[in-house]
Design a protein around this nucleic acid. Structure first.
Lengths: 214, 214
DNA sequence: CACCGTACTATACACTGTACGTTAGGGAGA
DNA sequence: TCTCCCTAACGTACAGTGTATAGTACGGTG
């Protein structure tokens, strides 16, 4: 068999190829066999560099986290928090495949730690005690994760015309007597499934709460 | 072939069986073939009642949403909001398989609409205008979804001793010079990945923000 | 030059969702 | 009561999946 020369593979090359495939065909269509084929290599070759599929997921996630900018210095801490949250959201929007990688697995890896360090540092410098800093970090992270992944999922659904049509139909079949508010607010609800404005609305609620507490 | 008599199946029976399997073996281990086998039926029999796997997911989700209690009447609206959010969170904790069903698919179904109606009704009665009510609804929903699903995922990870050991190891290998805050706050971060206290902390931040805005 | 660890290959297994075509049970009409 | 048809459930098949296990040949080291 035309054996590929040795050491053509590397963890980094595999990660980059996996990322390419995920971006091209969606995170669901990603498969180890696809990555291997793209690299002209048997499926099992990847197991030299990654213990299993989840391990490769972690590699891709950390690679993406490495793209996040550093926290801007010399700004009031609320602006710094906003910057961190917005850049994470932006990264998720640019790389929708990041959603399952963030939501489904615990955080680990060097670049991921760097991002956490940035936000925690801001909170500590702002005077938050250790427990409150940790709580706030988790709250902000889960808010960004929840709202942005929801936005991305809904946008994906809207791209499938058949599913979208069915969704609209089931919405319109709701009884206005049984569900007056849902029917009345249907247009607003459709509009607020995503977008910068929606994201900032929730983020500002959290920041207002933080300011009120301190 | 010992053909099963007709009309032994029904959408509801399939949904309940699917839910049982999901709760027993985890949402990931759930498969159409497993449900069919449990019912003593060929895999394709299910397609009489559900268009595909996602359609069955929606059925199970709506079934679970039907378990949520009505919004308590005669209380201040912040308490009503808290009650809705907490009962959704509780349902997710009691049925972890609900996480992918909520996060991965658009909301549809009768019971799901009922839940949305409850929260929207509270907000409208409290005097929120249509747009703000919709925005607040989305914010609260994505916060509950994000924080609770994160909590559930992390708890699941902690149950796998091998994965947990590796995670601890990678945490402890972080340089205290490069990541001072992460290293310093590691115990707090581990403690704040979940729990009622953490959930209420974020929820109260949001409610404080709402109060400040009105 | 011989050797050995290791990067890669080959094969195989137990699964998955579901498209397609077939068969038989039960209710409706003659 | 007999017949017919609709449809619920069946069987088969396909194109995938992740990964366990075992084998092979290449590159650097002694």
């Amino acid at each position: 068999m035309a054996r590929t020369p040795r050491n053509t593979l590397s963890a980094d090359l595999i990660v980059r190829t996996a990322l390419e495939l995920m971006e091209a065909k969606g995170a669901d269509a990603f498969s180890l066999r696809g990555v291997a084929a793209e690299l002209g290599v048997g499926p099992m070759a990847l197991y030299t560099y990654f213990r299993n599929k989840d391990d490769l997921y972690d590699g891709v996630r950390d690679h993406l986290m490495g793209l996040l900018p550093a926290v801007p210095a010399d700004e009031p801490w609320p602006d710094q928090v906003r910057a961190v949250c917005r850049s994470l959201r932006l990264l998720m929007l640019q790389h929708p495949c990041l959603v399952p990688l963030l939501a489904g697995r615990p955080l680990s890896g060097h670049e991921t730690a760097r991002v956490a360090e940035g936000l925690l540092g801001v909170l500590r410098s702002a005077g938050f005690d250790p427990e409150t800093a940790a709580r706030t970090h988790t709250t902000l992270f889960t808010y960004v994760l929840g709202s942005t992944s929801w936005e991305i999922q809904m946008a994906a659904e809207r791209r499938d015309p058949e599913a979208w049509r069915r969704l609209r139909a089931s919405m319109e079949s709701l009884s206005a007597q049984e569900f007056p508010s849902v029917v009345e607010l249907a247009p607003e609800l459709a509009r607020t499934t995503g977008g910068d404005e929606q994201f900032n609305y929730g983020l500002d609620l959290l920041l207002a709460g933080l300011r009120a507490a301190s």
